[in-house]
Write a protein that binds this DNA or RNA. Structure first.
Lengths: 251, 251
DNA sequence: TGACCTTTGTTCATATATCGCACATATTGT
DNA sequence: ACAATATGTGCGATATATGAACAAAGGTCA
């Protein structure tokens, strides 16, 4: 790609949108400039553009994103076949095992939920399509990382901010790589309260018709009702069953 | 705002993202140019920029959005307090009445789901945060339109593509305005299979602490198990109860 | 209170990058 | 093989980014 095939004004604008986050819903111009590394004048122009187009509100001091911004992400969720294909299978699965079932793909060091059938909320975190979790300590993340060539998964682990969410969280890259090898071997991953105390989950990869791993599905359950040791014997077959059914439907 | 406070490259790029939709997941350069009205060269530069940044994949012919694009919408969902505040109330409500409960806001002529607690799927459409429905024939849409000044709601109806989803769909603007007056009067809206045969729903507005309507919540139920006439007597009080509790929490 | 300092927002001139056109090339379908 | 359609590229005209200078708001302390 040539230098001139890149619209930096567009790239800067996208950076500005991403500056808004969980902890920073209301941003002044200077905040955005700091968060994005853009010049204050440039940040201001991007923000005013967002406001002009109705993607943000501006009260003269702070900018706030409007729901119109959801059109952008929705373009993916509605346009991509995967979420639509997977959803009914998750619904059936969730009802069958009476636990939440989800599907996700990898985006950098994070898993991104693309579909979900929630039975009953067991996590303090509220997950929905578009939600993100660090891959290294999520069951679907382990499965997706395990599907990558070793050098790539190692690179992603190194990029990750490996912190302990609970006393059980694995954070040593070496131990994590061993665990990924184990996951690859056995074809599924179990997480025992590494992300949140009281929550266990089990995930399997979803392969497309050519055998490439394109996503992962999981079942989450309260540790109190389903000890980690029982996750596999209860849920592995239902998960594998869905993966088998989906294999021919995905490309 | 001055002319120079607008970054048209950014605006063009956003248009390109929105060109991807339900029926058009894979777009070639010329498709995007046609859909957006942009010059081919410009569309190409925007698309290559998206690909370069990892928001899209390019196989040399077609562009497809990647899950990274969800970061943009997620910036809103995670940054805006409303979805987080409302979610637990929806969960409780859905469990209590054993039906799906949702919350939405208005974006132009559409309602946008910002939170949802699904009990069991009764609709053929799969709704999730970010999903959109035409306001004129959705219960939350009626409530949100009714909360606007008459000239604004009329303007939105005129902008809407008023089509019949089912034989029961109201499409006459005059009848719709009468219905909105009725909804405003009684403080809730009931939809009886106007969007999809077999689906009824009832919605109430969510006011903030200053009395401004900031969103709507609804309960959807299969017409077979809950006739439209019974929607109000069964679900109006639970919905009103949630609205009352939330009033002091919203601003 | 008021003088001073700091932070934030806005404006401007100019160097730089992007747009859109026209043309060249490649791909597709018949 | 040809027409039709789609994609790639060079260039002048136009739009945008930059960084410094200015203005305004907010905070601090005597």
């Amino acid at each position: 790609m040539r230098e001139t095939d890149f619209v930096s004004g567009f790239a800067r604008g996208l950076k500005v949108i991403e500056a808004f986050g969980e902890t920073t819903p209301r941003l002044a111009i200077a905040d955005v400039a700091k968060a994005t590394g853009l010049d204050r004048a440039t940040a201001r122009r991007c923000l005013l553009t967002l406001a002009e187009l109705g993607y943000a509100d501006y009260d003269g001091k702070f900018f706030v994103l409007t729901p119109k911004i959801l059109r952008l992400g929705h373009a993916y969720l509605s346009a991509t076949p995967l979420p639509h294909i997977v959803q009914p299978f998750l619904d059936k699965l969730a009802e069958e095992v009476r636990q939440s079932a989800s599907a996700s793909v990898l985006d950098g060091t994070e898993v991104v939920y693309i579909a979900r059938a929630s039975q009953k909320r067991v996590m303090s975190i509220n997950l929905m399509p578009g939600s993100r979790l660090p891959a290294y300590c999520a069951s679907m993340g382990r499965v997706l990382l395990a599907a990558l060539p070793e050098n790539e998964s190692l690179a992603l682990l190194k990029q990750s901010n490996l912190k302990s969410f609970t006393p059980r969280t694995l954070t040593d890259p070496v131990r994590l790589m061993e665990e990924l090898a184990h996951v690859r071997e056995q074809g599924f991953a179990v997480i025992d309260q590494e992300l949140e105390l009281g929550l266990c989950s089990i995930a399997v990869p979803l392969e497309n018709d050519r055998g490439r791993v394109v996503a992962a599905i999981n079942i989450g359950a309260p540790a109190a009702s389903v000890p980690a040791a029982e996750m596999a014997e209860r849920y592995l077959e239902p998960l594998k069953g869905v993966a088998r059914l989906l294999k021919s439907l995905l490309r």
